[in-house]
Amino acid sequence: MDVLSLGGLFLAVFALLGGSILKGSGLGALWNVAAFVIVIVGTISAAMIQWRMQAFLRALKMFRWVLREPEMDRSGAIEKLVGWSQVARKEGLLGLERSSEEEPDAFLRKGLQLLVDGTEPDMIRNILHVEIDTLEDYDTLGAKVYESMGIYAPTLGIIGAVLGLIAVMQNLADPSKLGHGIAAAFTATIYGIASANLFFLPVGHKLKATVAAGSKYREMLVEGLASIAQGENPRSIEVKLNGYVSGG
């Protein structure tokens, strides 16, 4: 569980609710069904129009990474790679066939199979880097879905405020409704700006960082697999790969 992200979400809610109370508006001032429909539903609909189904669904699946990042045990992976390099030096690359069948990670399993098949180191790098780039592009689209909603939300907040003010103008003859109507109109602006800056944009940037970290992790795996194919000393492989851990 990502405690920092979870804490950030709670603080975002607290900032809005607490700020409304401290300003004397109360919690009721923040709830307006019309503003919610215009801003939140409108933002989601705009994203649905912009993005293809595949990217939109990927964005929904990726949201869990905000609170729990994909498992990337660098130290454990290095230990595996060093162990496989020792097996390869003693038994040859065919000695890794059993490991390739039992490896749960699909990316590593594919790399091990390439090793067992006797693929050249440069070819291993080329094949696996294509997969890294493809996966990175796919996941980056998911992150951009949230960023796009962060762009649409403030504008829809303004639209909601304008629509609310139009309703106020229609009731100028009744001064008792003016104050409440103006307050309700500006609630839409709060929804738009707050959702963009406290949710959509931070989520999009967090997911982009997670995607980049995943690509870096897989690059480390590729380097380890290629080093095994080159017959490098296990100790040299370990020292080389530890550079990825120290680099974050």
Rank of each mutant, 00 (worst) to 15 (best):
Y146N: 00
N197I: 11
A185S: 08
F200D: 01
H129S: 11
I159C: 05
L178H: 03
R125Y: 06
F200P: 01
R109Q: 10
P175S: 05
V145L: 05
I166C: 02
D139C: 03
A184V: 12
G157K: 03
H129Q: 11
V145S: 03
D122F: 12
Q170H: 15
T210L: 13
G204K: 00
D139S: 13
T134K: 15
T187R: 02
A183T: 11
I158A: 02
D174E: 07
T189E: 06
L112A: 01
L135W: 08
T189M: 04
I127D: 04
L198V: 04
T189R: 09
F199I: 06
T210F: 06
S176E: 15
P154I: 11
A196L: 04
A183H: 09
A209Q: 11
G160W: 01
Y152E: 00
D117W: 09
H205C: 15
A194D: 00
G142D: 00
S148F: 07
E136N: 14
H129T: 13
T119L: 08
K216M: 14
P202T: 10
M149F: 02
F200I: 10
V168Q: 02
A188T: 10
F200L: 11
K144L: 04
N171V: 12
Q170N: 14
Q170A: 15
K206L: 03
A153V: 10
E131G: 13
M123Q: 15
V168R: 05
K206R: 06
I124S: 04
A183K: 05
A184C: 13
K177P: 09
Y138G: 06
P202I: 12
L115A: 09
T187W: 06
